[in-house]
Design a binder for these strands. Structure first.
Lengths: 181, 181
DNA sequence: ACCCTATCCTAGAGCCTCTAGGCAATGGGT
DNA sequence: ACCCATTGCCTAGAGGCTCTAGGATAGGGT
């Protein structure tokens, strides 16, 4: 019974019942032990949730890195974005966890995401000074899309997958013809 | 003591202590009555939160509509986006409430947001078939940006306001030179 | 006067968080 | 072999949030 296994179980629980329902009680129930017993392993419920957040961000970065491997330009953009969206769809609870306010514990994982996104830009020709803005644009759009999709914000007006492909087309064109400041 | 005043108080509470801390108990405390007394006014805590969500989406749509009035093209885009971001910064708790999964009660407010976003497109020349994709791109980017900013995701790498302006520049250029499918 | 409804109350059950303190097994050092 | 510290779990219990059931009260309409 390591803290690691515990966090993994919490992540699985999150995907099953939603991150907001990840409680110490529910986890204890799943392990067949008393609530109080958990507090030897974990400081408190808050910390448990942060660890799940950190796990999610790390997994997501791993998969994004994988998607990027050996690709560049448009291929890299699409593969990265799809890794992002696929992860959110496969692991909704984990993904939601990743949206917790950035804590010291998750700051390094968050930095990795920025660096990976920045790697995409190497396939386009943007001035160095524009990189930070482009990274934020991509991050925002990917995250915004998957969270609105997940919340049902796109439910009543046409094919969500088609829009996603089109949005990636448009972002590719935008990076390829990045307007001068 | 109408349901409306109650929801308004809940929204204020959300902005002060965070949406996740809006509880029936906290609200009752603020009104100086017992928890149980609230259940004559409100079905349950879930409904209270949904009403706050609906209030937030409606207020946000009102302000976005105001920002759009009399503007078109790039002006409209920037004013709309700023209305969005300003609202999120001024009313963090309400904004967070607006991200609840779309319920039947909030579906009409959500539709209004789509229509307002669509109004921006009238200042650009996009084929009708592209509108749904462009609306989703804009929504995603605005929402993604303000929520990542709020969560602290942009904390460690430069001026967030400058990036915001630049992102809007880029979106303007993207809408102006929308790539063919 | 009488009733009715709105508003609030107490009591209490159920779930979640977390602290304090205890007990038993395990396994390493002597 | 023996001791003892650590580990992992336990019970007990306090306190907060949610919600139901049922009761008091007071003002307004008939």
């Amino acid at each position: 019974m390591t803290a690691e296994r515990l966090v993994l179980a919490a992540a699985e629980l999150a995907d099953e019942v939603g991150f907001e329902n990840v409680t110490v009680s529910a986890l204890a129930r799943r392990f067949g032990i008393r609530d109080a017993s958990f507090y030897s392993h974990i400081r408190n419920a808050q910390e448990l949730r942060e660890q799940v957040s950190r796990l999610a961000l790390t997994e997501l970065a791993d998969q994004a890195a994988n998607a990027l491997a050996g690709r560049s330009g448009r291929d890299a953009l699409v593969a990265f974005a799809n890794a992002y969206r696929d992860y959110a769809r496969r692991h909704p609870g984990r993904y939601a966890a990743g949206q917790l306010p950035v804590s010291p514990a998750t700051a390094d994982a968050a930095r990795r995401h920025s660096e990976l996104t920045r790697a995409i830009l190497r396939g386009y020709e943007l001035p160095e000074a524009e990189h930070v803005h482009a990274v934020r644009l991509l991050h925002s759009t990917f995250h915004g899309y998957v969270s609105l999709e997940r919340a049902g914000g796109f439910d009543h007006s046409g094919d969500v997958a088609a829009s996603w492909r089109r949005v990636l087309d448009v972002l590719d064109a935008t990076l390829a013809h990045w307007p001068a400041p």
